[in-house]
Amino acid sequence: MELTRRDAMGALAAAGVAVGAGVVADRFAGTEEDPPAFDEHALATTVAVGRAIYPSDLENVESFVRTYALSRSEGDEDYRTGMADAVAALDEYTQDWYDSDYVDLESETAETVLYEMGVDVEDPDPEGVPPERVRYYLVNELLYALYTTDTGGRLVGLENPQGFPGGTDSYQRGPGTDR
């Protein structure tokens, strides 16, 4: 399955982020420069987390995550700072255990690190201990972005996630049927 610009726009709309379609298209295509306040390392780490937690058969994960993360954090200094702190906490953990930043880990190790750190069992808390912040700013945010899209919704059997059109016809037919 392929993540598209429409998916990125839908995820941003579901998160309450207002951004123009042209901006999303440019970011998705990689033609717009990143906002200067966003750290490239934090963005690359967010993409690496997306690759670790998203199903492996998804395509365009990097474009989707970059577009979502840049647009989601634009104009929200507190969110951007929290995200950078979560990335720093994740890197500190991987430096202690693997002598490497998270973004430089092999894909299997990157998945394992999140479990070893306890991210899967901690409650998300933007001001909590490192695993809680990683879960809040990186894991949950990216999962929310994915599963509020049409493509992500289909992965888990939601044929019409919130924010996508379809009307009464969309819920009166079974999953996987066109009409």
Rank of each mutant, 00 (worst) to 15 (best):
W97A: 14
W97T: 15
W97Q: 15
W97D: 15
Y98S: 01
Y98E: 07
Y98G: 03
D99V: 09
S100L: 10
S100I: 02
S100N: 12
D101L: 12
Y102G: 00
Y102E: 04
Y102S: 03
V103D: 14
V103Y: 10
V103Q: 13
V103M: 09
D104A: 13
D104P: 02
L105D: 07
L105H: 08
L105T: 06
L105W: 04
E106K: 15
S107Y: 03
S107Q: 14
S107K: 11
S107P: 12
E108Y: 08
E108A: 12
T109P: 05
T109M: 11
A110R: 12
A110G: 06
A110E: 06
A110W: 04
E111K: 15
E111N: 09
E111T: 14
E111M: 10
T112Q: 13
V113P: 09
V113A: 09
V113E: 09
V113S: 09
L114K: 05
L114Y: 06
L114W: 07
L114C: 05
Y115V: 13
E116S: 11
E116W: 10
M117H: 08
M117G: 08
M117K: 08
G118T: 04
G118H: 04
G118P: 06
G118L: 03
G118S: 06
G118E: 02
V119M: 10
V119D: 08
V119C: 10
D120W: 08
D120N: 15
V121D: 13
V121G: 09
V121P: 01
V121Q: 12
E122H: 07
E122Q: 12
E122G: 00
D123G: 11
D123F: 11
D123T: 12
D123K: 11
D123S: 13
D123Y: 11
D123Q: 14
P124T: 00
P124Q: 06
P124V: 01
P124A: 15
D125Y: 01
D125C: 01
P126L: 04
E127S: 08
E127L: 05
E127V: 00
E127C: 00
G128M: 02
G128A: 06
G128E: 02
V129P: 04
V129E: 14
P130S: 02
P130M: 03
P130L: 03
P131K: 03
P131G: 05
P131V: 04
P131M: 04
P131Q: 05
E132P: 00
E132A: 13
E132C: 06
E132H: 02
R133L: 04
R133V: 03
V134T: 07
V134S: 04
R135G: 00
R135F: 01
Y136Q: 10
Y136A: 12
Y136W: 14
Y136I: 06
Y136F: 15
Y137M: 04
L138P: 05
L138E: 03
V139G: 02
V139A: 08
N140I: 03
N140H: 14
N140Y: 10
E141S: 14
E141C: 07
E141I: 00
E141N: 11
E141T: 13
L142N: 09
L143Q: 15
L143C: 11
L143R: 14
L143N: 15
